[in-house]
Simulated assay, not measured.
Amino acid sequence: MKHLPTLASLLLCAALPLLAQADNALGGCAEVAVDGYKAPDYGCLSQQMGSETNATKAAQKNREAQNIPVERRQPNKVGLATPAATSVRMGNTFGTSVKPQRP
C-alpha cells in the first residue's frame, strides 16, 4: 500500500505521451501556457494547414527554381569576367593599356 501513489504516478507519466499522440492524431494541437503566455505548437498547426500533396508540389517548385540552366545564369555566378569587374580591376588603364592597375 505504501508504493501505490508512486506506482500511480509512474503509470500516469508513462501514459502522458500516449495521450498527447492520441490528441494529435485526432487533429488537436496542444497549447502550452507559461506565466500566462500561450505558445501554440506551430509544427502541428502547419501540418493541419497544408496537405501532403501541397507540400510535395511546393518542394518540386523549389527544386525547379534552384536548378537554373547554365546558359541562363548570371556571368558572375558562373565565374566569367563582367565588364564592370574588368573595369574595376583595370582601373584608369581600362581601354588604354594591357597592364591592369590592380592585379
Rank of each mutant, 00 (worst) to 15 (best):
L18M: 07
Q66C: 08
N76E: 09
A58P: 00
M1K: 01
V70K: 14
P5G: 00
Q74I: 03
S9F: 05
S9V: 08
K2D: 02
A59C: 11
M90L: 12
Q60S: 15
N54F: 06
S87L: 05
A25Y: 04
N76H: 10
F94T: 04
A14M: 11
A22C: 09
A55I: 00
A65P: 01
C44P: 06
D35F: 14
N92F: 07
L7A: 13
T82H: 07
A14T: 15
Q48E: 04
Q21S: 14
K99T: 08
N62P: 04
T6D: 12
P75W: 09
M90R: 11
S9Q: 14
A22K: 13
C29Q: 07
P83I: 14
T93M: 02
A84K: 14
C13G: 09
A14E: 11
V32W: 00
A8S: 03
L7P: 01
T53F: 03
C44A: 12
A20Y: 03
V98A: 06
P17D: 13
N24T: 05
R73W: 11
P75T: 00
R63P: 00
L80V: 05
M1R: 00
A33P: 01
R63Q: 03
S87F: 06
Q47D: 13
T86G: 00
S46L: 09
A65M: 15
F94R: 03
T56L: 14
R73A: 15
S9I: 10
E64T: 00
A39V: 05
G27W: 08
G43W: 10
L45F: 02
R89V: 05
L10E: 12
T56G: 08
